[in-house]
Nucleic acid binder design. Structure first.
Lengths: 243, 243
DNA sequence: TAGTGGTCTAGACCACTGG
DNA sequence: CAGTGGTCTAGACCACTAG
């Protein structure tokens, strides 16, 4: 890491320093619990003043990348995917914000006609006789499956849902565009995945998973009913409230 | 804001500066969209160097208290809407609302002194040297264990925590009374319980559990850090958002 | 142009950790 | 003790906004 490149192009030094450290972490060169160079060492190697290095590392700590212990050193923190709990985030955006690559595979995309019994059991409170689209998509983060997204969508409100290519744009993003939710409900549970789900997520049947049921309405009309499954070992949900 | 008080007691200047600003905002003296004093003015009035003022204001911006515009000034940001979603429910009330009976058992109640390493690793961002109370309580619904509640509490803010009888009133209720949270953070995961936890919850080691880390602040001072474990088979987390 | 925030520096003192 | 991060300072230059 020669100091030359660091001082040429315009961009705050503390930002370039942060990016450099994030890159090392995401490339795996600086792995979990790795003791990264001290502030003094980075000052020397990068020819940047300590206050600037300090700011970069302090911000990385508050962003969850580093653990810093006075008198000991700075260490790479455990990295887990995180999802905003009650903010309906787009998983593709989340993954990209972490500097990873998102991809997805559409397993099912069909029109269905539920009878009342099925509708009740699956908690689909659509109006009787409403045509419904059913999709099942697996999302990957750097080729590792991190979420199964199974949706039942109100075909009357979003008739073109079934025509979309959801490897290019997530259902979340599409729906937010054509029929943004005004209300929603979440139910979160810890469960074991069934055989098909284990296979899609490439996990062990004993691995605990987060299961989220999410129903959204747009002006009191139900738009979609979603079941999301995350492997517990690869995902966290995070939320903040207040101020 | 005389500079005298600011330089007497020990506490980082940037933190005292942040606190001073938050107080003005919460008292209403500095209301929504109010243009607060510039860095240069605070430097003069507080007799603190600009870098320190800058850090305080920069952090307040990233925490959502301020909006800062280069060349213009710093303004009080809009208060975020309270999300009923994250209404921190009292488990005793929840259980009683279902018509069941709640009881609890206090397993641990002690004062501890964390060193920095432990504190960092456990994400306990208490101020260095802050005395901390540690409690571990099991909650029962009709004699069936449904939650393990492990708390680390700021003993400086809530000195009488350790004197309470938490079989009579939950920590949640007590804390809401003496130091209501103004901000909070949740992290939700699916995990397997460890041996002690399985024993306390009377579950099988293979049963998936919901793990919730919840940290709460009162006016930017951390109040408590809680780890909640629910057996997946006996508990769901529910939330609603929107109009 | 004057005022604002954005960044950077070189050096300083401190508290804490480990050997 | 030496090494580490935590904080603070005084001054500097810059980019941006407004009048």
């Amino acid at each position: 890491m020669p100091s030359s490149e660091f001082h040429t192009d315009p961009a705050p030094l503390y930002l370039k320093t942060k990016q450099m450290i994030i890159n090392k972490i995401q490339s795996g060169e600086w792995y979990y619990n790795f003791k990264i160079p001290s502030e003094a060492e980075l000052v020397k190697h990068l020819s940047i003043s300590r206050m600037t290095i300090n700011r970069a590392m302090r911000e990385l700590m508050s962003e969850g990348y580093l653990i810093r212990i006075q008198g000991v050193g700075s260490f790479v923190a455990k990295q887990k995917g995180q999802s905003a709990l009650f903010k309906v985030e787009n998983i593709a955006d989340e993954i990209q914000q972490r500097g990873r690559s998102h991809s997805s595979q559409v397993i099912i995309m069909e029109t269905i006609d539920l009878n009342d019994a099925e509708s009740s059991i699956k908690r689909l409170d659509f109006q009787q006789g409403t045509p419904i689209y059913h999709s099942l998509i697996v999302h990957y983060e750097d080729k590792i499956p991190v979420q199964i997204e199974e949706r039942y969508v109100n075909a009357e409100i979003v008739p073109e849902y079934i025509l979309q290519d959801f490897t290019k744009q997530t259902p979340n993003k599409y729906l937010n565009h054509v029929a943004p939710a005004t209300e929603g409900e979440h139910i979160v549970e810890a469960v074991l995945a069934d055989k098909q789900e284990c296979s899609l997520l490439n996990i062990n049947p004993k691995d605990p998973c987060l299961l989220i049921y999410r129903r959204t309405w747009s002006n009191a009309i139900i738009i979609s009913n979603t079941k999301l499954i995350y492997p517990g070992s690869r995902y966290q949900l995070k939320g903040k409230f207040g101020l």
